[in-house]
Simulated scan of single mutants.
Amino acid sequence: MPSPTILQIVPELETGGAERTAVDVAERIVAEGWRAIVLSEGGRLVDELKSTGAEYREFPAKTKNPWRMWRNAAAIADLIEAEGVDIVHARSRAPAWSALIAARRTGRPFVTTYHGAYNQKSRLKGYYNSVMARGDVVIANSGYTADLIRSRHDVGDRRIVVIHRGTDMRAFQDPSVADRAEALRTEWAVPAGKRVILQLARLTGWKGQRVTIDALARLSERDDWVGVLAGDAQGREAYLNDLRTRIRDHGLEGRVLLPGHCTDVPAAMAFADTVVVASTEPEAFGRAAVEAQIAGRPVVVSDLGAVTETVLAPPAVGEDARTGWKVPPGDPQALAAALEEVLNLDPDRRASLAERARSHVATRFSLEAMTERTLDVYRGLLAER
């Protein structure tokens, strides 16, 4: 019997959870001796995808034009037949509609991964989102996401599988990380001797950079820190300018930096002292909080969405089980108070916290666990066929 062929479709391969997971799963598919094909409009991760041995096909997967989406369905169906695709896996709504039609036309199993807490303020938007709940198997990237799916769509528990996002812990243990961290510190002009409060997130309103800046303003009497808000504005120049103005108005120029997109997360985490996840809307998973814990860095997160699964903090657990801090979303005063507590940690408490955090993440959120459970989904569908 020939090796199975798995087709994934994602709008682009720039940055983000869906894109990163598509590449990670493709690598695991190839390692299994199977064939992986990814359809996308391209981006930063294409070369990495190709290096795994997966096949990349440039495809107009971002389009939301109904006519183009219908044409895409026909093109995907042709590709399924020509390439002997066994399973179709969609990771975003617009291309998922095309992939669903193609899978049904060709009789192939259809898998979706519900990657985000998609906005759903109208019945029309609810219908648009519903494609992500139409898979033969619907993968939720957290328990929070699974509950969201159940509340929005008529999906039985039998079709929902919770597979937490996984992170490659080896990348944070690479011996070169320390040297790369120093190079990144120099590139970003982070002052020597200052403790770094890091936020790694694309620059968009709901990621909470405004809240972080307002919180840092409350720490301005301390002179031992610098804030780094690293992320790609992705064309949101008005928002970027608003952040610059906010920094200037608080008198934080030179103390809060906006270095742009970060391509080396392990290096950035390595020179950070504290990591902030200040989202003002629920995260379906929240990779930065997990990566901070892998790196052994104290993390302060907004208490909403899936962080209840990724970060442990009182009162849900005792102080001796804490792996981070949770604060109300959109509350700069609470965030500042938590940061003050973190900055005042003694070395022994920081070391204990780091050890607990790494153990917590290794147990529940490893890349190996995520990719193996995803292949189990594929194996089950192949067996049914």
Score class of each variant (00 low, 15 high):
Ala270Cys: 12
Gly231Ile: 02
Gln234Tyr: 05
Leu353Ser: 06
Lys194Pro: 01
Leu304His: 15
Ile80Ser: 04
Met370Asn: 08
Asp157Gly: 15
Ala238Cys: 03
Leu335Gly: 05
Asp223Gln: 13
Ala18Gly: 05
Glu281His: 06
Leu124Asn: 07
Tyr56Val: 14
Val137Asp: 03
Ala26Ile: 04
Arg373Cys: 07
Ala73Ile: 04
Met269Thr: 02
Arg244Asp: 00
Glu237Val: 15
Met69Trp: 05
Asp346Ser: 09
Ala103Ile: 07
Trp206Leu: 04
Arg379Thr: 08
Glu182Met: 11
Glu368Asn: 12
Arg244Asn: 10
Asp331Arg: 08
Pro347Ser: 07
Val88Gln: 02
Val25Trp: 01
Ala338Val: 10
Arg297Cys: 09
Glu27Met: 01
Phe172Glu: 06
Asp179Val: 01
Ala94Trp: 02
Leu335Lys: 04
Trp97Asp: 08
Ala192Val: 11
Ile76Met: 07
Ser122Gln: 09
Arg91Leu: 15
Leu367Phe: 12
Gln333Lys: 12
Gln8Leu: 12
Gln209Leu: 09
Val300Phe: 08
Pro95Trp: 05
Leu335Ser: 06
Glu372Cys: 01
Arg358Phe: 05
Ala362Val: 07
Val290Ile: 14
Arg185Ala: 12
Phe271His: 01
Pro191Ala: 11
Arg165Gly: 15
Leu381Met: 11
Glu237Phe: 12
Arg71Met: 13
Asp174Ile: 06
Thr145Trp: 00
Thr204Asn: 04
Val327Trp: 08
Pro191Trp: 12
Thr263His: 08
Arg91Thr: 03
Val138Thr: 12
Ala288Asp: 14
Gln293Val: 09
Arg150Glu: 14
Val85Ile: 10
Arg57Cys: 11
Gly260Met: 09
Arg349Phe: 03
Thr371Glu: 01
Glu27Trp: 01
Asn241Ser: 13
Ala189Ile: 09
His89Tyr: 02
Ser51Asn: 10
Glu283Tyr: 13
Ala233Gly: 00
Asp376Gly: 13
Glu55Ile: 07
Glu281Val: 12
Arg350Ala: 15
Gly260Ile: 11
Gln333Asp: 14
Ala18Asn: 01
Ala334Lys: 14
Gly126Pro: 10
Ala82Thr: 08
Arg44Asp: 10
Thr310Leu: 02
Arg218Gln: 15
Gly143His: 11
Leu45Met: 14
Glu291Thr: 11
